[in-house]
């Protein structure tokens, strides 16, 4: 069954573009990634799904229910983790968790205690005294404590240290295994690659690619920078080549073995292989789109 389905979803802020004719389908039980640069429309899509903003045209459904007309019924099944966790002043963590549970008319005390223990969150502290990372943990517990069927996470790992990121993703994977659908919006590619089964790439308000992460990753190249002298003539899959006198930098999407062969045949003083930044991957997708037209 479809957990999320949008059809020609469009949102304009006055004349400014938010999202355009967005068609997105997320099946129940998926761990779905949502990638895009700042301002691409990730947050607009999420905010529309959550009923914070009303679409200009098109429709969005969660569990078959219209997010505008049946908002309350939809939100009952959703847990949302905002990118910026901001809370009321003067409240303790436990008061906040209680407030969130009361607004949902459910008792989540047991689940909350479990989550707080795993994330090492002290519930007797005042929220404004917490560090950014700890506030994020409070937001995570709020999003998870009622065991929602759909989890919407907007850039969730900002502020969390690596250990906590691991604990957090462990919890997410458990929830996913237990049947929860997860929509993870992020611009950290590795996060999506490690965790998601499918992903959509959004740019300038439109979805430009939507496929399994395996397929998307194959096309995502590495940025290779070599100091020294190497002959790249025989290599396939070299793009965006930039070079100085003694160094060369290029995007590589070909076979790793051939690259290593070419490198060992040359004289390499220094070598870095990094994930290309998101911009480069988007460029790649644009090129592909361009060819299709």
């Amino acid at each position: 069954m479809e957990m999320i389905k949008t059809a020609k979803l469009t949102k304009y802020y006055g004349k400014a573009r938010g999202i355009l004719d967005l068609d997105l389908t997320v099946e129940q039980g998926e761990f779905f990634g949502f990638i895009g640069p700042n301002g691409a429309g990730k947050s607009t899509t999420i905010r529309t799904l959550l009923g914070l903003i009303a679409p200009t045209s098109g429709s969005a459904r969660i569990l078959g229910k219209d997010v505008t007309k049946e908002k309350q019924a939809v939100l009952r099944h959703v847990g949302y983790l905002p990118s910026e966790a901001v809370f009321y002043r003067g409240m303790k963590v436990k008061d906040l968790l209680k407030l969130s549970a009361d607004l949902r008319k459910t008792d989540c005390a047991a689940e909350a205690a479990l989550l707080c223990e795993r994330l090492q969150l002290d519930t007797s502290r005042r929220i404004e005294d917490l560090s950014f990372g700890n506030r994020k943990k409070a937001a995570i517990v709020c999003a998870l404590q009622h065991r929602p069927e759909l989890l919407v996470l907007d850039e969730p790992t900002g502020g969390l240290d690596p250990l906590m990121q691991k604990a957090f993703f462990d919890i997410l994977r458990e929830r996913n295994k237990a049947g929860a659908t997860i929509l993870l919006s992020s611009h950290v590619l590795s996060e999506i690659q490690r965790n998601c089964t499918r992903a959509a790439i959004i740019r300038d308000g439109r979805i430009i690619a939507c496929d399994s992460v395996e397929v998307l990753s194959k096309t995502s190249a590495k940025r290779v920078t070599v100091h020294g002298r190497v002959d790249l003539g025989s290599l396939r899959g070299v793009r965006d080549r930039k070079g100085g006198k003694d160094s060369v930098s290029f995007l590589y999407s070909g076979d790793m073995g051939s690259l290593l062969g070419a490198l060992s045949a040359g004289r390499v003083n220094d070598l870095t292989v990094t994930e290309p930044d998101l911009e480069e991957i988007f460029l790649h997708y644009y090129e592909k789109e361009g060819q299709g037209v």
Binding site: G51, L52, A73, V74, L75, P82, V86, Y88, L103
Partner: peptide, 9 residues
């Protein structure tokens, strides 16, 4: 805080 409050049912 609206983001918190209004995403509750």
């Amino acid at each position: 805080t609206a983001e918190f409050l209004l995403t509750h049912p």
